[in-house]
Design a protein around this nucleic acid. Sequence first.
RNA 1: GGGCCCUUAGCUCAACGGAUAGAGCAUCGGACUUCUAAUCCGAUUGUUGGGAGUUCGAUUCUCCCAGGGCCCGCCA
Length: 553
Amino acid sequence: MPGAGYLQALGASLREALQQQFGQDAGPVSWEAAPASVREARHADLTCHYAFHAAKLFHTNPRELAYALQAAIPDSLGVSTEVAGPGFLNFSLEAASAKAILRDVFQNPAGYGHWQQKQARQVNVEFCSANPTGPIHLGNARGACFGFVAANLLEAWGHKVSREYYFDDFGTQVDTFALSLLARYREALGQESVFPEGGYQGEYVREIGQRAAQGHFEWAGLPFKNLLVELRRFGLQEMARAHRQTMDGLGIRFDTWFSQSSLERDGFLRRAQVQLEDGGFLYPRDGALWFRSTAFGDDKDRVMIRSNGEPTYFAWDIAYNLHKRERGFDWIIDVWGPDHHGYVMRNKAAFQALGYNADDLTLLIYQLVRWFEQGEEVKMSKRTGEFLTLDEVTEAIGRDAILFFLLDRSPDSTLDFNLDLARQQSLSNPVFYVQYAYTRAFSVEREAIQRGLAIGEIDLETCQAYGPAEHRLLAKIALAPEEIATAAASLLPHRLTGFSKELSGDFHSFYHDHRILGVDASLQQARLNLVSAFRITLGNILTLLGLSAPETM
RNA sequence: GGGCCCUUAGCUCAACGGAUAGAGCAUCGGACUUCUAAUCCGAUUGUUGGGAGUUCGAUUCUCCCAGGGCCCGCCA
């Protein structure tokens, strides 16, 4: 895993030292910003717990190990170090390290914070995947944001990632949708129509029916079956377009739109069934075909083909995973809502029964979002057509605010979204704190360029000028690759929103206390470089989070 | 009956097994003639739901208990 920046180089020297001493690799070093108390009392900028980690591994004393590590750090890396407490290793930045950090950023600005993996995995991240029988509603919003950013993080971490949307355009729900549409179509043509029982009553079905009637009144002459086929196709097309627009509105993009009907067309359901059958994992009971998921730890076996001959949803999942593997993905990630947690075990079971490693299938479950409007929870029912669409909320609150709000929390915790509050007080959303920091830095650069100043010319002399506030900010900039890797490895976007707030906070604080332009030329150059490095780093993080980086606010 | 998640400051939430548990909001008090005050600085706020265990060290890991949310179909 090639290093992504200065801290990775520094970490490599520690790792190498232990390798030589013990003849065994203790793994990569992880870094964090020095806690406030340490920063103030000891003037340290960064800290690592590597001595503890390694001491456990080598059954030795962490404090002694910390001293050994300290001695192994080459002077050329430009940090002063100290051992504290039972084995903390603290680092203070100096001119040479400041220079190295800045050079990392300016060498490849757009790629700063990104990694290269020696063995990049082919990752398929599937998320959102709303039913095509209605617009994307709020229930899908968290999964959409979470999946998108998780994919971005894995990509930045050095993997090959494909973002996939699964269009569930097959089965009884779509039949019901088509029948509902048929009623609306006839209604629009002024014909007698009976709305199907349990049909989709939402206004959007009426609108699609009207568009179908306006564009294709000639279908009315078709035999019932053909008419239904046309309307079904038309309706699905309209819904797919609507879903795409909704995702565009949030700035969420997909690499692949995959439909269930193509699974059917290519016979993957059948192939999965045969493969499981050959493995001896299927057996008939009560007229249905069962998958022996208990062989892999599930608490009961699961039906794959129902007694009426129809496959279950689970069967399609199996076929889909097979299809993904055969497309060359060696890591499959699905983002699911909390109501799906019961399906994790059986899917992993089937995945193994197909001959794959359970660890190569990751099923991410995020917890529920409850939406409140005027003090009451907004309940959603697609059948009755009572729901708030994601489009409506995006329009009311803004895409950046909704993304940040949904991302800035652990997926394990339930989330209450107060829509009235969000509409009124959207300015208190922390996304604006972060974006404002970007804007401020950008405006300094703009002004500097107008004054004919060069940005990014780094030499050791200007780097001498940095004091505690600058070192603090530099340390955060140096930590960005680390934070991105951590967020990616744990698949937790909220770690990165948290870091973006800290990074921005350090900048705001620095900006307030330090004049950048119009000071002594050398100092001006030093500070300008820092501002620009910060702006680049934050910009990359905003991009990963799917947020815009505004040049003005 | 079983499963997943949660319980941390007045409220909403953070905290790869690490140092004095942190932010925002709220409350109170300060700071703009400058590169954007959507900002900054300070004050106040804790028996991390309860108990036991593991260890140099536990909010974090294990077990027990209490409370809350969600799920347990030959629906998708």
